[in-house]
């Protein structure tokens, strides 16, 4: 099965690299201590250009966002985009929060934040938005949301591909937090290492805990120490994104410009996802909670992308 539905990096690590990592695992019989985790926080703080105190490491960004929600949900609404990638809605529902979705519309998917008059809300925005790949909030719009007293959590899972971030603003805005991950560009989806870069409001309330395990810690440290693998895989992914975008357009797809490691496309081919699945290729069908004919295709390696294009070409006759 070729999985182009989960936005993972197609570029794994070599056996040699993995053997090196295993050598750091002699202490697997020991819990990971906070003192050790601090080393990871320091690496991440340096990578993000913020103080170590602002870094919270967790097992996946969904968990970090869930923890924040648990602390701050009382009397607050949750605002999310529809569609959006994070799973915060389920937590909000369990907590009895009022959930407000903002419908995204092609072709520009723009959100008129200022006209929405959002107050007393936790606003969770994925940036770039998953699945559209668009950057859907500007700095001045974000400032406006924060100045109105809202809590804003920006999920920058695709940061390494977009190179656009609001992490630099957390010092000035206490109710802003940015979440990122080593799952995607760093190629560690199997270990789920996420982190949050938090404003003072979060720092004061959320306590630091050791939420990741030792293998995740060892691999995260190594991935951050030597960023060549990340940089190479991002650069290959951006190249492949351009190639896939061009070829899909040739095949009659509407392809939206993406800032992430996936493409949002529209196709007239009936039952596209189902037919690709029968050929052993998974892509995400967005019609369940969004529009018919829209799909999200993760950028695979060249072989995977070529297989996908071959199958689509056959369908186009």
């Amino acid at each position: 099965m070729i999985d182009l539905s989960s936005n993972e990096s197609p570029y794994g690590r070599s056996c040699e690299e993995l053997m090196d990592l295993c050598r750091g695992l002699e202490d697997l019989n020991r819990y990971l201590a906070y003192g050790e985790l601090e080393r990871l926080e320091r690496e991440l703080a340096e990578y993000c250009g913020v103080d170590k105190e602002r870094i919270f490491v967790g097992s996946g960004t969904d968990n970090l966002i869930r923890n924040a929600l648990l602390k701050f949900y009382k009397g607050m609404d949750l605002i999310v985009l529809n569609p959006c990638g994070n799973r915060v809605v389920e937590t909000a529902k369990d907590l009895g929060m009022r959930i407000r979705r903002i419908q995204l519309r092609p072709p520009e998917f723009r959100v008129d934040w200022k006209s929405l008059e959002i107050k007393k809300s936790i606003v969770a925005i994925d940036y770039p938005n998953n699945p559209t790949g668009q950057l859907l909030i500007e700095k001045n719009e974000l400032e406006c949301l924060l100045k109105n007293g809202n809590i804003v959590i920006i999920d920058e899972a695709g940061y390494e591909y977009s190179e656009r971030t609001f992490a630099g603003m957390v010092g000035a805005y206490e109710k802003l937090a940015v979440t990122r991950t080593l799952d995607k560009a760093f190629g560690l989806a199997g270990l789920r290492v996420g982190y949050m870069v938090a404003g003072d409001f979060f720092v004061k309330v959320i306590g630091k805990t050791v939420d990741i395990n030792r293998p995740a810690f060892v691999c995260a440290m190594e991935a951050l120490r030597d960023k060549r693998h990340m940089r190479e895989s991002v650069s290959k992914t951006l190249e492949e994104r351009e190639y896939l975008e061009y070829r899909l357009r040739e095949l009659g797809f509407d392809v939206y410009k993406s800032q992430a490691n996936y493409l949002c496309v529209r196709s007239e081919i009936a039952d596209l996802a189902l037919r690709l699945r029968e050929k052993g290729i998974l892509v995400e069908d967005l019609s369940r909670e969004w529009f018919d004919g829209y799909f999200r295709i993760s950028i695979g390696g060249r072989d995977e992308n070529s297989r996908l294009l071959e199958e689509i070409e056959l369908m186009c006759g």
Binding site: G96, R100, L116
Partner: peptide, 8 residues
């Protein structure tokens, strides 16, 4: 769209 759920 649900109990205390809405879409704009």
């Amino acid at each position: 769209t649900g109990y205390k759920e809405e879409i704009i």
